[in-house]
Write a protein that binds this DNA or RNA. Structure first.
Length: 906
RNA sequence: GGGCAUUUAGCUCAGUUGGUUAGAGCGCUACACUCACAUUGUAGAGGUCAGAGGUUCAAGUCCUCUAAUGCCCACCA
């Protein structure tokens, strides 16, 4: 910011400041944090965005919150580390790269695994840092020297280590189960990766003939008739009287003519459908469980791409939905469809490509979760980890207490290979779980050893993020040197556990819960002490923002148009504690306007500051007695604001903190204080106080609006350089201390007195506007005061009142005297009289007075009733009772004054 | 089926230990541009705090029920 008025543009231009300061901050190493035993660590690990990600509003909100916390704690003098990085996002990235090579006419399968992985790395080099660049645009003060990627070599070591340790502990096993299978991605998915959505489908009633009497049927109801080809039983509830006689009899499965038995199982709901259910063990998790109980056969009728296989006979090669139609047609022809009813059902969908998942029988690796969940439940119940807002604790506990085993193998190529090896000779028996590829088979000595083809679920690496980013396990880094040449050996001990995790509700199960389990299992301590769950960003109609809905507001567009600070501030000020946010583009104007307000207030101050005056030792002016009431009020308001803001930040009430600052800076400081002192701007007290408040306000605003505050703060620094004040370091506002609350400067009495004066000014302005008195008109006001104190106050500030209320004359009297043809107002024990000969409509004035008197009387009646109530006087705290009494007295006085005025007018 | 959240001004929302006259931003009305800022200033209009019951001296705030809306979880074929 240049120094003279002419050089400072009247509008804040974010483009000129943002990139400049970001670069300087990075160059000065201000984002870097290192082990420092003299300081308390404050650590946040970023929820690593997908390497394929592009910044959306959810990221903008989430990362702005983290940046506010980091900048605030850095200013508080803590060693604040924000650990950044990206997630390799297995399926998502593989899909993106597959689409990308498809443009060259290439397919993954033809390329081969090794070549394909090379292409993924290449893609990562080229496009993988997009979101990191975008986070920088957002002003994120991450320690970029520590940036990690979940596929980094060192990180992979941690993943392998964890797999081996869990396996050795008996918590990892391999088995054939019904899992969620995405036929498009052709991989298994965990339960969390296959969210259920409602679909409109049909309930088909199929008739299965009895072997002994082919004209008799058992009717079964199903939503997926194509799976009937794999049926190996029909089940009924043992209590179901309707089927009692035929239990154990044999049915002939239509189309395939397989003989199947009628069995009983308590799982069957008698109320649903016909009470008889077809059992397809290889294609339904319930049927699978039933089949295990009854020793039924498992017949898989589909291929991994969800086309029918050789067990489907003539339906082979048909897609599952095509097969459904054809099978229904064929059954219809044979008269084996009783009816078809429309039916709402919910089915799992792939969270990546939204394909309907197929419950599919296959061999996968699982983690036993119950033993891991137990300590993680305890930790939260004992309050070692606190959720904010606390309601999420219930969600977490509910999931953890009903946790299912975690399917961690994925049939894709991009990810951490499972550290499991098989001896080709010994086949399945020769399973070797190892940190390194074994040279020979332990059993037969064969060197023909193959690694498991599958990779691990992405979250199997993400759940290690709070410690794997600090080079875990420490034994592996005993030398104290990482491949990158830093010395990380004490980092883990110093920065772990991290301080707080800020994330979105969608990943509480995927990520938060699992990190807690991993932290307790491998670090023997919780990974963070607080979890702040920020709300979901929605559009103005409450819909989640998504590409497919086309309702995206791109944060980068907003930054381009309004500036980063404006975007950050707007977003924060409208986001209530953990509530969802409803956004429209216009809502960012508030932040832009505020940035401009800060800019112009600073411009005004810079233009009017006398460097010689603020260079003198400031402390002398902080003797309260020396300052006039205006300055005492202003400083008191500032420190009250500081106190409030600090409290809100400590409680994660970011919107309250932002709005408190907004209200103070705009309304108290600009609208009132600067307007008042304009008249006497060169007064040394005014000079120092306005400088002080601006400088400290910039510090309070800095975590929210980092760029504009730095820009202005640097200009202030230049102006006062060489002085003995805070600018002697003149480094960056980023590392300036967060101001201390000076309780002795908070002066409620001064605040109260000024409030009265401001009320008087407002009342006078109101009176003249109501009567359409032009601003140019020469008017006078007579104020009659009840107390000596008020008289003194008003006499002292009479110049201020005259100026702000645009009065020619202001006389302060002791007693109210009626003035003919005047407008009147009463504030507490103060009469304001504005003589306006010829303009005043006495009738109208009397009506207005009556209205006010009636209102006052009603209030008096209510207060009297309250105070007559003995229960109230007995039970309410004394101060409340006193307050009510005082208010009653005041109301009485007001009523009397109104009466006097009315009498005078008549 | 279970759970959670929301319901306060025309709109979008604040209001964390219950305590004067319920707040903000936007929008609206009127007035004001030589004097930091029209991305501005000044003043104003606008609310029986979803409904019903209860606890309490006192309820937007605590409890119960109802209604509407949104979200999450669950193996109903």
């Amino acid at each position: 910011m240049p120094q003279t008025a002419n050089e400072i543009p009247s509008r804040y231009n974010p483009k000129e400041t943002e990139d400049k300061w970001y670069k300087i901050w990075v160059e000065k190493g201000l984002f870097h944090a290192a082990v420092n035993s003299a300081k308390k660590p404050f650590t946040i690990v970023i929820p690593p965005p997908n390497v394929t990600g592009i910044l959306h509003m959810g990221h903008a909100l989430n990362n702005t919150l983290q940046d506010i916390l980091i900048r605030y704690h850095r200013m508080k003098g803590e060693e604040a580390l924000w650990m950044p990085g990206t997630d390799h996002a297995g399926i998502a990235t593989q899909n993106v790269v597959e689409r990308s090579i498809a443009k060259e006419g290439l397919r993954r399968e033809t390329l081969g695994r090794e070549k394909f992985i090379e292409r993924v790395w290449l893609w990562k080099e080229q496009y993988g840092s997009t979101i990191i660049r975008q986070l920088k645009k957002l002003g994120a003060s991450c320690d970029w020297s520590r940036e990690r990627f979940t596929m980094d070599l060192e990180y992979s070591k941690a993943v392998t280590e964890v797999f081996v340790r869990l396996y050795e502990k008996g918590l990892i096993y391999r088995g054939s189960y019904i899992i969620n299978w995405c036929p498009r991605c052709q991989t298994a998915l965990s339960d969390e990766e296959a969210p259920h959505h409602e679909l409109s489908g049909n309930l088909y009633y199929l008739k299965y003939p009895l072997k002994d009497s082919p004209d008799q049927f058992v009717v079964v109801a199903t939503t997926r008739p194509e799976t009937m080809l794999g049926d190996t039983a029909v089940a009924v509830n043992p209590k179901d009287k309707r089927y009692k006689k035929i239990i154990g009899k044999t049915l002939v499965l239509p189309l395939v003519d397989r003989e199947i038995k009628i069995i009983t199982d308590t799982l069957v709901d008698m109320e649903f459908g016909t009470g008889a259910v077809k059992v397809t063990p290889a294609h339904d998790p319930n049927d699978y469980a039933m089949a295990k109980r009854h020793n039924l056969e498992f017949i898989n009728v589909m291929r991994p791409d969800a086309r029918m296989n050789e067990f489907a006979g003539e339906y082979k090669d048909m897609d599952r939905f095509e097969a459904r139609e054809v099978i229904v047609e064929d059954l219809k022809e044979k008269g084996l469809i009783e009816k078809i009813e429309p039916h709402k059902l919910s089915a799992g969908h792939c969270y990546r490509c939204h394909t309907i998942i197929e419950p599919y029988l296959s061999k996968q690796w699982f983690v036993k979760m119950k033993p891991l969940a137990k300590p993680a439940i305890e930790a939260v119940k004992k309050g070692k980890i606190k959720f904010h807002p606390p309601r999420w604790e219930k969600v977490y506990l509910n999931w953890m207490e009903n946790i299912q085993d975690w399917c961690i193998s994925r049939q894709i190529w991009w990810g951490h290979r499972i550290p499991v090896y098989y001896c080709k000779k010994c086949q399945e028996n020769g399973v070797i779980v190892s940190r390194f590829k074994p040279e020979t088979c332990h059993a037969c000595g064969s060197q023909d050893i193959l690694q498991d083809e599958d990779v691990l679920d992405t979250w199997f690496s993400s759940w290690l993020w709070p410690f794997a980013t600090f080079y875990w396990p420490p034994e592996a880094y005993k030398q104290g040197l990482s491949p990158k040449g830093t010395v990380p050996k004490d980092d883990l001990r110093y920065f772990y556990p991290t301080s707080i995790l800020v994330t979105a509700q969608e990943i509480i199960f995927f990520w938060v819960a699992r990190m807690i389990m991993a932290g307790l299992e491998f670090m023997d301590d919780v990974p963070f002490k607080d979890v702040y769950i920020n709300g979901t960003v929605r559009d103005i109609e409450g819909k989640k923002m998504s590409k497919s809905l086309g309702n995206i507001i791109d944060p980068l567009d907003i930054i381009e148009e309004y500036g980063t600070d404006a975007m950050r501030f707007s977003l924060i000020s409208i986001t209530a504690h953990g509530q969802d946010v409803f956004l429209s583009k216009e809502r960012f104007e508030q932040g832009r306007n505020f940035a401009n307000k800060i800019w112009n207030a600073s411009r005004f101050i810079l233009m009017n500051l006398e460097p010689t005056l603020i260079k003198t030792d400031l402390c002398v002016f902080f003797k309260k007695e020396d300052l006039d009431v205006v300055n005492r009020w202003a400083l008191s308001r500032f420190y009250s604001t500081l106190q409030q803001t600090t409290k809100y930040l400590e409680n994660f009430q970011f919107n309250e903190a932002a709005n408190t600052l907004y209200g103070f800076f705009w309304h108290d400081f600009c609208d009132w204080y600067l307007e008042i002192i304009k008249q006497d701007i060169k007064n040394p007290h005014n000079q120092v106080v306005m400088y002080k408040i601006l400088e400290k306000s910039l510090r309070l605003l800095h975590p929210f609006m980092p760029f504009i505050t730095e820009e202005i703060w640097q200009s202030l620094g230049k102006l006062s350089s060489g002085s003995a004040d805070e600018h002697k370091q003149a480094n960056s506002i980023m590392v300036e201390p967060w101001p201390h609350v000076q309780e002795q400067i908070i002066d409620k009495k001064a605040e109260g007195r000024m409030a009265t004066v401001l009320e008087i000014i407002t009342a006078i302005r109101n009176m003249r506007q109501e009567l359409d008195v032009p601003l140019q008109a020469r008017i006078s006001v007579v104020i009659a005061v009840g107390s000596k104190e008020n008289r003194q106050l008003l006499e002292t500030l009479s110049g201020v009142i005259k100026n702000l209320a645009r009065l020619d004359n202001l006389s302060v009297e002791e007693k109210y005297k009626h003035i003919k043809s005047s407008v009147n107002s009463v504030i507490k024990d103060i009469h304001i009289t504005m003589p306006l000969e010829g303009i005043v409509d006495v009738e109208k004035e009397i009506i207005k007075l009556d209205e006010r008197m009636n209102k006052t009387r009603a209030e008096i009646a209510a207060k009297e009733k309250m105070l007559r109530n003995k229960e109230f006087v007995k039970k309410a705290p004394e101060e409340i009772v006193e307050k009510e009494k005082a208010r009653l007295t005041e109301l009485g006085e007001i009523l009397n004054r109104l009466k006097v005025i009315k009498d005078g007018l008549q």
